[in-house]
């Protein structure tokens, strides 16, 4: 299969970025509204797997736009306003797994799952790390508050959701990837 350059942004990327963002926004809103069960104070936010998966499947720009714009859409649907640094953090959660896209050829292989999960974890750490640390200059919290109050709760749940759901989506995607002929 012909491999595109990682920074390419053609028609396919335009459509999948939009799709990823809309899916992330709708699923975030819908799963919030369903009042899903949670363990302790760790809330389920399964939709975070969408930008990670779109990054892994379609590259970093698609992952970034899915995360960034998806968070904006989710907030627009819920009426939460606009939180630039958290939108950017969500974008990075999709961008970084996108760098794994060129290393993955078989979406069913265990090696691919490991690579995708490792990049997803890195994406969460960088993305939520940036968003949490931004509170130091936006809200004036100190480092320990940024870590305890923002980073740990956000990163922990996103990592758990990502490492479970991204491989499941990869297996499902493997079944249709051959049909597209691209």
């Amino acid at each position: 299969m012909e491999r595109k350059k990682w920074y390419a942004f053609g028609t396919r990327e335009v459509v999948y970025s939009a799709l990823g963002a809309a899916l992330y926004g709708v699923l975030s809103f819908a799963t919030n509204m369903l009042a899903l069960p949670a363990a302790g104070n760790v809330a389920l936010r399964p939709a975070v797997c969408i930008p990670m998966f779109f990054g892994v499947a379609f590259g970093p720009w698609v992952g970034f736009i899915s995360g960034f714009l998806g968070n904006v859409i989710g907030d627009a649907l819920s009426g939460w306003g606009f939180w630039f640094w958290w939108d950017l953090g969500n974008g990075l959660m999709g961008l970084i797994p996108g760098f794994a896209a060129s290393m993955i050829t078989d979406y069913r292989a265990t090696r691919s799952f490991v690579i995708a999960d490792l990049f997803a974890i890195l994406g969460v750490v960088v993305g939520m790390g940036l968003a949490s640390l931004s509170e130091m200059w936006v809200s004036g919290v100190d480092l320990s508050t940024a870590i305890v109050g923002y980073f740990v709760p956000a990163a922990l749940t996103n990592i758990i959701n990502g490492i479970i759901l991204v491989p499941i989506l990869m297996v499902a995607y493997a079944a249709i990837v051959g049909r597209t002929g691209r």
Partner: peptide, 27 residues
Amino acid sequence: LLAQIRKMAPLIVPVTINAIVGAEDIV
């Protein structure tokens, strides 16, 4: 918690994969 997240797949996977299949026509 892990089992609960895994059990969300029947909801998330069909919506995502259907959307991807449909998007090919738009591309």
